[in-house]
């Protein structure tokens, strides 16, 4: 009776967003390495070989952040909206599967940053009295209709609290 994966997937452009974010991180790491290179030329006490190590680390992290991590995240991301509950799965090394009953949901909202906006995406966040859950990178229209649908369903389902 294995649990099947939640049916819906997030938008494929999510990978592009994560890759751009990874690229920014990579650029910062390269900048640090280059900064060190010039610093080491001025300050004799700093060993020069450390520059190559920093460069290597930056390159490795770059591959992780730009290639591997977005790929893996995409494999695991899934969500499903049912009449009674929201089912969310995500993860990288640790995979987390959460179930949030409609009756417990206090508010839902959508928001998006500049990179997400570029691709017409938005993040949906769902809060209960004690917990907060997010579904990133949905098409803005999808996120908006989900938000409306969830608030309707959450209002309908009155249970003893």
């Amino acid at each position: 009776m294995a649990l099947e994966r939640p049916k819906e997937r997030i938008h494929p452009s999510a990978m592009k967003v994560w890759r751009i974010q990874g690229g920014i991180l990579f650029a910062i790491e390269i900048a640090i390495a280059i900064g060190y290179f010039f610093l080491a030329r001025e300050v004799a006490a700093l060993p020069g070989f450390l520059f190559y190590i920093l460069l290597g680390v930056a390159g490795f992290m770059g591959v992780l952040h730009i290639v591997a991590i977005p790929q893996i995240r995409m494999i695991y991301w899934g969500y499903e909206l049912r009449e009674e509950e929201v089912d969310i799965q995500y993860g990288l090394i640790v995979i987390k599967r959460s179930l949030i009953p409609m009756t417990r949901i206090q508010h839902v909202d959508t928001h998006h940053g500049p990179i997400m906006r570029l691709f017409g995406l938005a993040t949906l966040s769902i809060s209960t009295a004690g917990t907060k859950h997010q579904v990133p990178a949905l098409k803005q229209e999808t996120a908006e209709s989900l938000r409306r649908r969830i608030s309707e369903l959450a209002l309908e389902s009155e249970e003893d609290v």
């Binding site: 090394i93 640790v94 995979i95 987390k96 599967r97 959460s98 179930l99 949030i100 009953p101 009756t103 417990r104 209960t128 009295a129 004690g130 917990t131 859950h133 249970e159 003893d160 609290v161």
Partner: peptide, 16 residues
């Protein structure tokens, strides 16, 4: 059951 706000199961690589 009605008092649980949210339930989660979590598995890391080794647990999987």
């Amino acid at each position: 059951k009605n008092r649980v706000q949210a339930l989660a199961i979590q598995r890391n690589i080794l647990q999987r």
